[in-house]
């Protein structure tokens, strides 16, 4: 009975460790969705030159819809896109460095000629891709160490109780 209790304690601690790595996963998910949106914007600007309002209205991403990012972009209510963009970013769980990079796109959004707008988008995509790669590496490292730490803590607690 004690052995089963001990095993349960270790298992529960390991599960806690796994759950704690979920935050990093959501950051990566947000970054990937944001990057896909920016890539689509870049493609659509190159070929169609549709206004941002049309692009945001037509864009589909269940995650960005669910967190409120796309609805925030669509409800500009006459405000300029730089302000709308920064406000919409608040809905995404981004790592601080990625948020800073994403925010730098705001002031230029819709205010530049096409080639300059595309250059700015490309720069932002590169910077966010680097942030995403770093976040993935960190997440993997952190996941292993967090799970190991929590499992160890559970094991110690079980040994003490036994």
């Amino acid at each position: 009975m004690r052995l089963i209790g001990g095993l349960l304690l270790v298992g529960a601690s390991a599960a806690c460790g796994i759950l704690l790595t979920g935050e990093a996963k959501s950051e990566i998910r947000a970054l990937e969705s944001l990057l896909e949106l920016l890539r689509t914007l870049s493609r659509r600007l190159t070929w169609g030159r549709d206004p941002l309002r049309t692009l945001f209205a037509a864009y589909r991403d269940p995650y960005l819809e669910r967190v409120g990012f796309l609805p925030a972009l669509r409800n500009a209510d006459g405000r300029a896109y730089p302000a709308v963009w920064v406000q919409a970013l608040q809905t995404l769980p981004l790592p601080p460095d990625a948020r800073k990079e994403a925010e730098t796109l705001g002031p230029s959004l819709g205010r530049l000629p096409l080639d300059a707008q595309l250059d700015r988008l490309a720069l932002c995509i590169d910077a966010l891709s680097a942030c995403r790669d770093a976040a993935r590496q960190n997440a993997e490292k952190n996941r292993r160490s967090t799970v190991a730490l929590w499992t160890l803590a559970g094991l110690l607690a079980a040994l003490l109780l036994l």
Partner: peptide, 13 residues
């Protein structure tokens, strides 16, 4: 200009 270009200057370049 932002109102006239729907906040998308590139589209009217």
């Amino acid at each position: 200009l932002a109102r006239l270009t729907e906040g998308s200057l590139y589209a009217f370049e």
